[in-house]
Amino acid sequence: MALLPNQEISLKALLIPDSEASKFSRKLDFLILPIVVFAIMAAVHIHFMLTAGDWDFWVDWKDRQFWITVSPVVLMIILGAIQAIFWVHFRLPIGATVCGLLLILGEWINRYFGFFLWSHFPMSLIWPATMIAGCMFLDLVLGLTRNHLMVSVFGALGYALLFPAANWFILAPFRLPMELQGSMISVADYIGFHFTRTATPEYLRIIERGTLRTFGGESTIIAAFFAGFLSMILHFMWWNIGSYISNLGWAKTSLKTSMGFHKDDQVTREEGLGGPVEGIMGGPTDPSEAK
């Protein structure tokens, strides 16, 4: 896409090393960075807590079927969109990694202050799963291939498959068998039993309750591939939604006088404001057409 004249001038100035423009631009980067960090952390965290919720909150919900399916799939909704925004406008293959990192940071803050200090649950019950490995894989495939279709097909599949694999190292000790009152349970089940949750009784867990022997009874692998398949679709969908809604545009409006403009005011090419983009609201694609 061709640049507007003022943008061409800006770019030339920015490409000169140590120019005023490049220094200012760098300052702007670091001013915007904390805003981006907090905005993404809040968005990803609240989204994941509302959707994956209990599967991520409790160790005795981290099962072979639902946890493995739900966690990567629901996170993909926001990953796809943010990855697209970072890539389509800035060619930065870090959107998913940023989400994964900020999600885990937000989760630890929440678990420590909310779950541990406030509600007195022990960390062994409430530790969050890590999504970083899968998120990085998504970005790395994008950085390597520079093709979002490849990311949707291979990246998203790998992202979902890596989720249980990257968490097994920390989950395995909680799957050790033990005996309690004549029944065999896992250590995770015991921790869930031992530390009382008044509003989350045992029966409320949405976990694997039995597996047919189809595909060899391998719940984890089947669930991971199913999550991968859904992630592929969701990544493609949300990449496009993210790209589309991140295009700022403007539209002709009769209400502009109430916003302080005169009736005949119009933004010109020279005045900039980034210029019209695609006219997503149905407006003209060139401001001169609106005159």
Binding site: A2, L28, D29
Partner: peptide, 18 residues
């Protein structure tokens, strides 16, 4: 690795320029 380089405005304009 990515943030160490100039970010928003230059990358936006370079990307747009094509």
């Amino acid at each position: 690795w990515w943030v160490r380089r100039p970010l928003l405005i230059p990358r936006y304009l370079m990307n747009k320029q094509g």
